[in-house]
Simulated scan of single mutants.
Amino acid sequence: MHEVIAEEWNQEANDGFKWQQRWEGVMSSGFERTDNEVITEAAAPEIVGSTAVTVVLSRCQIIASNCGDSRAVLCRGTETIPLTVDQKPDREDELLRIEEQDGKVINWNGARVFGVLAMSRAIGDRYLRPWIIPVPEISFTTRTDEDECLIIASDGLWDVMSNNEVGELARRILRRRRRYAAAGEVTAAQTVADSLTEIAVGRNSSDNISVIVVDLKSKKKQRNT
């Protein structure tokens, strides 16, 4: 996905667009291209799909793009800020979109499109078109000096931990590890990711668990802590 997004950025003509509009075009075309490549390269049959969440980090912006129910959150000071909103079939706007195309959302161990899929957007899952679409939602967040870390994870984590629980644990571990970290040790961010994964497994999460943690504090600030 990151290679596709980078290629789309290089191919996207500026055409006088504002930078936000350009990123929206890049993310949308990148997700669509990835969805098409899943089929053309026979990477998966039509009944297989995946969520996708991407984050582009610049010196001043955090650009998050989400399709499905994976999630990205930002730890800023004492706050845990969601950068994405899960695309669930019973979310009011998603339910309306599905029903307007003669689709149905059935409650079967939670809201599911035709009683099958528990998300309303995804890469792949072609057998549920046009109700399941690979169109991402994109958010822009201006960075601040209070930003601690980014946490990007699949729903195996979020099914058993709230945003606030994840944020509190991340802040606690990061600050402790930054203060006492020795050369050659596992990074503070990796320690957070490992700890979150272990907790999700310990809580018997029934879905896949992928966790990426990005430490947003500069090395200079870490040395001064």
Rank of each mutant, 00 (worst) to 15 (best):
R171Q: 11
L96G: 01
D90P: 05
T197E: 11
V214Q: 06
G68W: 01
W158M: 05
R177A: 09
R97D: 05
W108G: 13
V4T: 15
A189L: 00
C60D: 14
D90L: 01
P134K: 08
P136M: 02
A64M: 06
I199H: 03
V160R: 09
R177P: 01
V214H: 04
E79Q: 13
I199L: 09
W23V: 09
V38D: 01
L128C: 08
V85M: 04
H2Y: 06
V56D: 10
V166S: 12
D207L: 00
E185R: 02
R175I: 05
W9A: 14
P130A: 11
Q101K: 15
C60W: 02
R33F: 01
G184C: 08
L150H: 11
G115N: 04
G49Y: 04
S195E: 15
G103K: 10
E46H: 08
I199G: 06
R177I: 05
Q222P: 08
I5H: 02
D102G: 04
K104E: 13
V48D: 10
G202V: 02
L216C: 02
E12L: 13
W23K: 08
A13M: 12
R22F: 00
L216I: 01
R112V: 14
A188K: 12
R91L: 05
Q20F: 00
W23A: 07
V186F: 00
A52P: 06
Y127I: 15
S206K: 13
E92M: 12
P136W: 01
I209F: 00
D69W: 00
H2W: 07
A64V: 04
Q21E: 14
V48P: 03
N164A: 08
L83K: 03
P130D: 14
G25D: 12
R59W: 00
Q222G: 09
M161H: 06
Q11A: 11
E168M: 06
N164P: 01
R223P: 03
F31M: 09
I133M: 13
Y127P: 09
A122W: 07
E99C: 11
N163G: 10
Y127N: 15
I209G: 02
A200K: 05
L57P: 04
A13N: 15
A42P: 03
I152V: 14
T51R: 06
V211W: 00
V135D: 12
N36S: 07
P45V: 05
W9F: 09
R179Q: 14
T34V: 13
G77E: 07
A118W: 03
